[in-house]
Design a protein around this nucleic acid. Structure first.
Lengths: 262, 262
DNA sequence: CCCACTTGTTCCACGTAGTGGAACTGCGTA
DNA sequence: TACGCAGTTCCACTACGTGGAACAAGTGGG
């Protein structure tokens, strides 16, 4: 039981799921697995995380290694390689300049920690984090994945996903409890999603992490499909449930401002 | 003649070059092409940049799009997609913490702009940039690619590459002139590389950009192969050729400190 | 000390998935 | 009107990836 706990199996692809996938698809899943948090990964773990047979994973990794996308540490310890690093830099070097500005404004307006996350499959991935003015740090880290049903951003995303897809995700992953407050019944979740939809923002009231309270909103892509979300994160003993609601307009505004940029 | 000028064809893979490559390899090259600086790209450009036949590129792009790695803007305008963004965040979210520290120290020690770049093929790609104390900004940007023979980092890399590989690169790409100072003759280049090897650092004396002077050193991977380099960038009217040499020890130290981290 | 279990690695016969040239369409331009 | 160029579709061929099974090497427990 080494490595982190929030690494979900993610074997279940979202939505229509074309199941196995082909060559390139597998390679990319393997890449993602290698990039996953938690140090250099072993072949077996990568294979499991990517849902690719071991022998295939082996071959794919070998190929990725000599293309420079993956680096192998000692014997059979895989890590992200220079070429992937370069690609990464390219990606967020070319990131629309507006993103940082919008997040910065939200951070300044609230004084709290701000997160930007993208939705993919049954999780969201933090791609940006701006620390709040307070002297303590939250445990979240860029690159981390979180469940949908326990986070403000995740619930924002769910609220804008087609009902069928939500049901599919719930069926596939269940609603694992993370705190006493976690919504674990589909009914309760659906009810909240309805509320989220009408208000335009979602709350996480210690449902993901004790003492942590968030407010978030989904960022919708051009097609109206949610691609991720923004949130403001606070600690319960500093910001009450009422106070955090006062951030709602700023959060919603940020989400809307981000829509054309993601 | 729209878009930027520094986008080299990069058709020529480095070293032994297994030529075309297979499925996954092509997909990754296409991905890199899509992520390249200069807004949303057209199919034809992507195909050219990735050195993949148009019809194949088309198919691959379609696949990447519905996997979420690529997003297509209007009609046939391709851009990096959410899933690639997430992967990116994962990569440099999990970046060895030491890197930022080392670069920061170099920046503070010199007060100048600091670059970290990775080598791939016939170019280096900036993956990190720390602005100097001076109020002006240099044109470089994270994600940008530069030739090897005109930059301090590039020459540092070349100096540590097997002679055969250097010759191959020179033969393949030539030594295009970028400024009056650019080394355009193989002899001159080889002579300098020899010097670079013995001193442990390389100079770029307005060879890449007029009025810009850099000092850099290669970062060697575990196998002794150069994976990239660090450099300090200055403007000629503020820092003389002698002065910039005084940064050499700091630059070399940074390069060595980075070796185990890249 | 040996056995049972896991992990990394190699092998190989099979068939599918990817290939890329060529042909078609539709738009803009000379 | 005719040309050229970009995006898209088609299709027959085969190389490429596939993944189960067997092997090797290491680790821990009884």
């Amino acid at each position: 039981m080494p490595t982190h706990a929030e690494e979900t199996p993610e074997a279940v692809r979202a939505g229509r799921s074309s199941a196995a996938g082909s060559a390139a698809e597998k390679s990319l899943r393997v890449l993602e697995a290698v990039a996953a948090p938690g140090g250099p990964h072993r072949l077996t773990d990568v294979a499991a995380a990517a849902a690719v047979p071991k022998s295939s994973t082996f071959r794919i990794l070998a190929s990725l290694v000599d293309q420079g996308f993956v680096r192998q540490e000692f014997e059979s310890r895989y890590e992200v390689g220079p070429r992937l690093r370069a690609l990464s830099a390219l990606v967020d070097g070319g990131e629309p300049a507006g993103i940082g500005r919008v997040l910065g404004e939200l951070q300044r307006a609230t004084g709290q920690t701000v997160h930007l996350a993208l939705h993919s499959g049954d999780t969201i991935t933090y791609i940006r984090k701006l620390e709040g003015d307070q002297p303590f740090r939250t445990a979240s880290r860029v690159g981390m994945r979180m469940p949908l049903h326990t986070t403000a951003i995740g619930k924002g995303v769910l609220a804008h996903l087609p009902a069928g897809e939500v049901a599919g995700l719930v069926a596939a992953t269940g609603l694992p409890r993370r705190t006493p407050n976690t919504l674990t019944s589909p009914q309760a979740l659906y009810a909240q999603l309805e509320a989220v939809r009408s208000r335009g923002h979602a709350l996480d009231d210690e449902e993901n992490e004790p003492t942590i309270r968030c407010i978030g909103a989904a960022v919708l892509g051009p097609s109206g499909r949610p691609v991720g979300g923004v949130s403001v994160t606070t600690v319960t003993f500093l910001v009450s449930r009422e106070e955090i609601e006062s951030y709602a307009p700023a959060v919603r505004a940020a989400a809307e401002a981000l829509a054309p940029l993601l």
